[in-house]
Each structure stands twice: as C-alpha cells, then as structure tokens.
Amino acid sequence: MEEFDLQSLLSSNDKLLIHLLQSYAQTNEIAVFVLNNDDNLQAGVFGKLSESDALSKVDKMGDLSKLSVNKYKYSIEYADAPVRIAAINQRIGKVCVACDVEKSADMKNVLVMQKLNRQVDYLRYLIESIANLIIQNRGIDDFVIKYSLDLNKEIDNLDENESDALKRIKHLSTSNGSIIAAIEFIDNNLDKRLTLDQFSGRVYLSDYYFSKLFKRETGLSFSVYLNARKIQKAMILLKESNQSINEISDSLGFTRLSYFSQTFKKYTGYAPTKYRVEDIN
C-alpha cells in the first residue's frame, strides 16, 4: 500500500514551493495554506492574518475539514482547489486561499470570492507544474510512503454492525464533494459489480485515502455502505415487484444467489423469501 507524502514535496528543493506560497500570500494580502487529503494542515498558514479575527487561530488548528462551511463564523471568504499529480493520476490534497471580509458587505464579498477563485486556480497550476518538474528530476519514489499492511482491508474489517447500516444511510449527511460524487455513482450503478478502485479513480484519490475519507464522512466503510444500498433497493423490489429473488440478485450485481441471501439476512435479519411474504416494515 502506498501513500503520497505531500509534506516532503512541499519541503523539497530547499522548500521552493513553501517560499513561493509565502511570497504570493504576502504580495496579495491573503492567507494561503495546503491541506492533505485528510484535511490536515501542511507546512503552516502563509500570509498576514488579522489579529482581531478568529482566522488568526487557523494556523493552530490541525483538522481544517470544516473551514469551508464555517467561513462566516470566521468572517472570511474562502476558496480551494484540488492538487493532482500527473505521474500517479491522483489527488494529493488541496491548496486554499482566504481573506478577511466584512459580514455586511455582500456585493464586495462576491467580488472578493471571484478574485480568490482566480488566485486559487493559479496556485493549483503553480504547485502542480513545479511538483511535476521536481518528480521528473528526483523520481516518484522519493515522495511515496510504502506500507507493508493492506490498509484497505484493515479499514473494511473495522467492527461494524451491518444491521445498523440501513438505519445510518437514511440519515447520512456529508458536504465532501468527492464522497457526494461517489455516493451518486453508487446510486446510479446498483446493478453493477462495483469495486473500490473504480471510485477512488473517479475522484483521483488512492484506494487508501478514499477508504479513509469515506469512513470518516459516512461512518461506514465503503463495502458496508455499498452493500447496504443494494440491500435497501432489494427490500423495495421484494415488496413492490414480481421479480424472482434470483432476478433481484442478478439485477443488483450479486454473482451468486447464496451470497445475496446471506448478505440480505446479515443486513436485515431476514432471509429474502421470509421478508417478501411476511408483513415486515
């Protein structure tokens, strides 16, 4: 299992990227910072921040995953953009920009936001371009951490109660764009045999990071969520259609009827045949 080391990239070549980000932040009077795929701060916040504003506390925070939805609390405008590495075709984190604004200055804040979006796109291009040059010179292996354990299996094997999964997905809420995209893809492709690498590739994340992010945002591992959605659809079909159990199993991408029946019972407590004939809500 491999993980890209974003911090090593930022600190490479005598901290070239860090110095460029610092200079850009100071010149444009904004805050600039980089987060990894876990939304943890890398190398600090660059730029002069208002001492009277709550944003001055940002550089003391480790997990900035809620900053975008809490920007009004900090009286800031905020924008971010994903950073991808072409050599591995993966997203390794995101670059973020922010600046203080007045809560009442609505039109002015819109203009600020437009400017921040242009600035963050430029910084994303800057980081990706320099990163690609550094990697071409030094090789990708210098920036990859290798694990001996299969962390995907470790995440999927966390103690979870499948019978609770159906309840949890009814009240699931996330603002993470990658996870929203993955959930929409699941919902539109319940008839297919879906694999972890299909989803991680769609959002340009490694299998490890995608698994970790999915678990954090939904409270369920990817495999448990996927099966819960399939079983949820099966429950509807068993009650509202004339399809046979074998046809329902096939329509939801299960390769064997026995595995479908086993999974259905694990999530609902009932065999498919019993669920269909009995008055069970």
Rank of each mutant, 00 (worst) to 15 (best):
H19I: 00
L20M: 11
A25H: 09
A25Q: 11
A25R: 09
N28F: 14
E29L: 05
E29N: 11
I30Q: 01
I30A: 02
A31C: 00
V32L: 01
V32I: 11
V32G: 02
V32K: 01
F33Q: 06
V34C: 03
V34N: 05
N37R: 09
L41W: 05
L41A: 04
Q42F: 07
Q42H: 01
A43M: 06
A43N: 08
V45M: 07
F46H: 15
F46S: 08
F46Q: 14
F46Y: 14
K48N: 12
S50V: 00
S52K: 07
D53L: 08
D53F: 04
D53A: 12
D53I: 03
D53C: 09
D53S: 13
A54Q: 14
A54H: 08
A54V: 04
L55G: 10
S56A: 14
S56L: 08
S56M: 07
K57C: 07
V58M: 09
D59G: 10
K60C: 04
M61R: 06
D63F: 05
L64A: 06
S65I: 14
K66W: 03
K66A: 15
K71A: 09
K71E: 14
K71C: 13
S75N: 12
S75Q: 10
I76K: 05
E77L: 10
E77K: 13
Y78A: 03
A81V: 04
P82L: 11
P82I: 12
P82F: 11
R84A: 08
I85K: 09
A86I: 14
A87P: 02
I88M: 07
R91C: 14
R91D: 08
K94D: 04
K94G: 10
C96H: 06
V97Y: 00
V101M: 02
V101P: 00
E102R: 15
K103V: 14
A105I: 02
A105G: 00
A105N: 14
D106W: 13
M107C: 05
M107Q: 10
M107R: 14
K108N: 05
L111T: 08
V112D: 01
Q114P: 01
Q114V: 11
Q114L: 12
K115M: 08
L116T: 07
N117Q: 13
R118L: 13
R118E: 15
Q119N: 12
L123P: 02
Y125T: 09
E128V: 10
S129A: 13
S129H: 07
I130S: 03
I130M: 04
A131M: 02
A131Q: 01
N132F: 03
L133P: 01
I134R: 07
I135R: 10
Q136C: 13
Q136G: 11
I140V: 15
I140E: 12
D141A: 14
